[in-house]
Design a protein around this nucleic acid. Structure first.
Lengths: 144, 144
DNA sequence: AATCTCTTTTGAATTGTTCTAAAGTGTTGA
DNA sequence: TCAACACTTTAGAACAATTCAAAAGAGATT
């Protein structure tokens, strides 16, 4: 069977607002604008700094503090996932489904690996009283 | 069959010195002391800050900058592995063999998972011109 | 011991992120 | 519609982790 690649529908301003509201957050100018940038296209990966610049280029005036607040709120609301690949900066991923990443250490680029690609088996039972939150797989790649 | 758990031999001052030298580094007082702390016992995980404190308690005077230098040099020499589980601080692991980790987000603890436990299959081919450097698996756990 | 090179150190500098207090804005009910 | 309130945003300070730079110190080699 062919893999069903969900082509995201270009979100309208209204649906973006609705999405923010649905997340339990007030649809403020900033949040709507950032959601618009984040969920407009294909799945994407951003750092706070990168999104800040992108917003600036798009003519949206948002403070860096708000970028951080928003990224965390969206993450908490399940709209984003945080990806840990670098001790030094945080990446946020609009793809909240089960999947993994290639990480190009050289330039900090992240590339999605569809969730059904890699097989992970025999994840051991956590210590008493603990439960698995999630299993992260990062395939670090470099120039051949 | 039973898993062969290599019980590390208590490294002598001489062998520690030799280990540092073998790594292509001058066996200075600081490096020998840090190697002594790091490779004395079982496999262990440290942060720069933690090792700094530990050294202080052990009566070894080493600057934090040297801790960082040394951890990186040891890593580059293949004596340590860096583990990325937290965008915020770097962990170093004296276990340089193939294995994975449980990561307790709550308190930042790392727990080794023997390399032969988890099965990873079908790691996809990296983009043209790239090669897999390594595959990291982190099992994030939390209080049940 | 002289010399050369590699190391360590201190403290400043950077980077990424969070905090704080004040000003601003969405929402609600009269 | 507007007041009133709670939630947000903002600028800038504060922080934490790490790196850098210049000068002093210490192995190695002769």
């Amino acid at each position: 069977m062919s893999v069903t690649r969900k082509k995201p529908v270009k979100a309208s301003a209204e649906s973006t607002s609705a999405k923010v509201r649905a997340a339990g957050l007030r649809p403020t100018r900033q949040r709507i604008a950032l959601a618009g940038l984040l969920f407009r296209d294909e799945d994407r990966h951003v750092t706070a700094e990168a999104l800040h610049e992108e917003a600036a280029k798009a003519g949206v005036r948002v403070s860096l503090a708000t970028i951080y607040n928003t990224l965390h709120q969206f993450t908490q609301a399940g709209l984003l996932n945080e990806v840990v690949v670098d001790s030094g900066r945080a990446y946020f991923d609009t793809n909240i489904g089960d999947h993994q990443h290639f990480y190009v250490e050289e330039n900090g680029a992240l590339i999605d690996i569809p969730g059904e690609t890699i097989g992970i088996s025999n994840v051991p039972t956590p210590p008493k009283g603990m439960a698995v939150d999630r299993v992260d797989v990062v395939v670090r790649i470099k120039r051949a």
